[in-house]
Amino acid sequence: MASPEGNEGGIVMRAAGAGAGSASRTPPAAPGKRIEVPIKKAGGGVEEKLHTWPFLVRNEFLMTLLVIIVLTVWSLLLNAPLEQPSNPTRTPNPSKAPWYFLGLQEMLVFFDPWYAGVVLPSFIIVGLMLIPYLDINPKGNGYYTLKERFFEIMSFFIGFHILWVSFIIIGTFFRGPGWNWFWPGQVWDPHLVEALTNVDLPYMFGFRDYLASALFGLFLIGGYFVVGYAVLYFWIRARPAGDPWSAFPGGGPEILEKWGPVRFGITGFLLIAMAGVFIKMALRHALNIKYILVTPWINI
């Protein structure tokens, strides 16, 4: 067996669970090659199996029928938009990106385009891809559970549902000319003027010198990450031992040891950067802060 603990019969299970095709699959790499977490294979061989034909194919067929019918009726009732011919000299106000990018466009309120439009999406894509490698909790593989994966689900919920989906809704329904906030039904007044009284954070603290304010900004951001890492570290270490829902009976220290510094570092970076979005939003809305770090090249 690949991993010493809790994987008895793993290969047998895989063969049983994965259908005829994978019975011949070679077992996972030798001990030490893989992470030392029990690997859960598909199905247990306990569950009763059904013939794909007719049971699965029937469901797929009915679902196909339903989707095609809904799509056809929808398309008969609602026409795809076609506006005036394109005219590069007439910029509509507001100009909105396609709706699935409006979350990022909304970020432009809080960040410069290089961060909102390039760096942040890159973090999202890379972060999504890394999820399976960062999350070493062996529980909750193949079934719904909240208790066994509370932290993971919360992170996903904040990142996906709040930062992505809710901002799309805001961008689609609540933003009008000048990217100002309009309630649905409210008249879009293109001449609405919103006072822009934003100041930079170092300026607010009395820094007038470029170098000093840049250093102050760097210090704040660096300090934010140090504090963020420290909070994460001590919070995880304080996880109690013997939690019946956790896969790590040793509690915090065991989690940290199995997780390792690389995973901790990357996860921490992504989470702290994500929390940074909220902090920047709060600073903007509550204190009209424009930038925290001001340099001749980049502003954050």
């Binding site: 669970g17 994965a18 259908g19 005829a20 095709g21 598909a42 199905g43 569950e47 009763e48 199996k49 059904l50 013939h51 794909t52 034909w53 049971f55 699965l56 469901n59």
Partner: peptide, 9 residues
Amino acid sequence: PSKVQKHTV
């Protein structure tokens, strides 16, 4: 596959 576990259906 020609057979599937019950829950996947």
